[in-house]
Structure formats: C-alpha cells, structure tokens
Design a protein around this nucleic acid. Structure first.
Lengths: 146, 146
DNA sequence: ATCTGCCGGTCGATGTCCTCCACGCCTAGA
DNA sequence: TCTAGGCGTGGAGGACATCGACCGGCAGAT
C-alpha cells in the first residue's frame, strides 16, 4: 500500500465524514483521484466501513466491562462467538491466548443488567466468566500511526 | 433522549456516512428535521465524531493485544494515561477495577514490535505488565441496541 | 378563552459536493 | 515505435447539505 493511501486511511480514521474535497486538499490530489483511491481501499477491504463514535454514557450504556470466558467442558466444540452473537450488549469478541479462551467487551445500563448478561453468557456458551469492570476510559479508539 | 434520536444514533453507528436523505427516509422525517437532530446530538456530545473502521491486518497492524498494567510503586501519583498517550500503538486505555489498574488495547506490526512497546510502556509509566495476545477477533465494534 | 413563546416540524432556495466520463501522461514490454 | 494499462486531471450533471422563512401545537400566564 502506498504512502498516499496510508494518509487517506488515517485521515478517514480520524474523521470518517471528511469530504472528498477536503481529502483532495490534504493529499494534494484531485477530487477524482482521491475518490477512486477511497473506492479501491473499500473494495480491497482496507476500509471496512464507517461508524459514528458515541458517548456511551449519554446513550444510556454507562457501564463497560471486559468478560473473560473459559469453557466448562474443554472437549466441547468451541463456537462461543456464534452462540453469543445475539447478545447485543457484547460489543466485541476476541479469541485470546492464555488462561481464558475469549475476551468480551460488553456495555450495559446498570450493574443489574451486567449480572443478567453474565448469566445469559454462561448459559448460552456453557462457560465460566471472569469480569473486569472499567471505571473510566481515558481514551479509546484512537487512530493508528502507520 | 427520544426514540427517534436513538434510531438516528444506531443508524449512524452502523453506517457513519449515511446521507441525511437516507436518514430522513429511514426515520420518516424531513431532511431538515433530521439534520437539526443530528447537529443537536453532536452538540450535546452524544455523537462524539465519525471514524472509518479499518482492517488492521490490511493496514499493517496484524497483531493485537491487551496489556494490563500495575504500578510498581503504589504510592506514586497515578497518571499513567498521560504518560502513555504518546505511544500511538495504544488504541485504548481503560481504568479498571481489580488486580491491575489499567487495561490497554494495543496494535503492532509484529511480535518484536510488541516486545519493544512493552518495554516503552514499563519505562514510561513505571509499571509491570501482563499481556494477553489476541489470536483472532470474531467481531468488534458492533453497534449497540438501545 | 386568548395570548405569547417556544420547540420542532415542513418547504424551498442556494451553493457545495459527489460521481461519472472523456481525455492525457507516464511506464513497461514486445 | 507501438500499444496497453495504471493513474492522474478536468468538467458537467445531478444529488446532497445547509440555511432561512414559515407554520402548527403545546404550556403557562393573564
């Protein structure tokens, strides 16, 4: 990937609604050239999409936690991600190396909702859970350097 | 916050570049009404910004890890987030309850780069680290339910 | 009951931006 | 030298964002 593509990617990672006109000005290219590069980046999957970044407190999900899960029966087939996908409170699911097999990032409205969610997770995927609640997040979703 | 604002928020969380025309069609409002609601959501900070979601492999950062940090001197002032902010490989920093004090999400190019980053983290914040490398991420950054 | 603000909506006009197409410039290979 | 392909520019059209003017309903005060 070329240097100018990297530049476009970091610009769009920083401001996903930046106009093609502005992108062109920043990169020194014409609008059309930028446009076709962005389309190519999307087609190649480098840019997977665009998203609004929310204030989770303002949106009514003030409690964030990381939930590490470990299968109760280690011999059972490991399809926890699919079994948990229907739980909208789960924002992300990472398969990890180490003691536990997955780390889930969850957002809920209250401690009570967290308790209920943990029960659902254990029941749906037949796992034990270890949860770490986040107290505050100084920063999150920062754009990469490249 | 009203129902229609929630709807706008989830639509924009799912597609951050959706046009106001499409938003208006989805919500049943006029373009102007949607426009003014979105501006209000931004002014109130409910929508903090927009971002392109990237394929981190394609962008040259194929290795993701969670780094839990714990101060070596518990009596020292706790300003780890500021001391670590200059490290661009750190995508997120959460203050957490539990054994460790922060969880960092980091993205690097290689295991070697991870090793180097860990040294920088330890040196910059005077902490010990415990890192969990992610093997794959089935999903990430899903829009909330509300 | 009427008046008065205000919030939130529609409508319409204007300027900007997106999007596509035709063309030109390099470079590589036969 | 010819040719093909990748990548850029420029322009034209239509779609879109943005703003102002106007309108209707609701609440509180007179």
């Amino acid at each position: 990937m070329e240097d100018i593509d990297r530049q476009i990617v970091v610009l769009l990672a920083g401001d996903g609604r930046m106009s093609f006109t502005d992108l062109a000005r920043e990169t020194g290219l014409s609008v059309s050239a930028v446009h076709q590069r962005v389309r190519r980046l999307q087609k190649r999957g480098v840019i997977k999409g665009y998203s609004a970044v929310l204030d989770h407190e303002a949106v009514g999900l003030p409690l964030t936690a990381f939930v590490s899960i470990k299968p109760i029966d280690p011999a059972a087939p490991d399809d926890a991600p699919e079994k948990l996908a229907h739980l909208d409170e789960i924002e992300a699911c990472h398969s990890v190396a180490g003691e536990e097999s997955y780390i889930l990032k969850v957002r809920v409205t209250s401690p009570g909702a967290l308790e209920e969610l943990l029960q659902q997770i254990r029941a749906a995927a037949n796992v034990s859970t270890r949860t770490t609640v986040v107290l505050s997040t100084p920063y999150e979703g920062r754009p990469p350097r490249l």
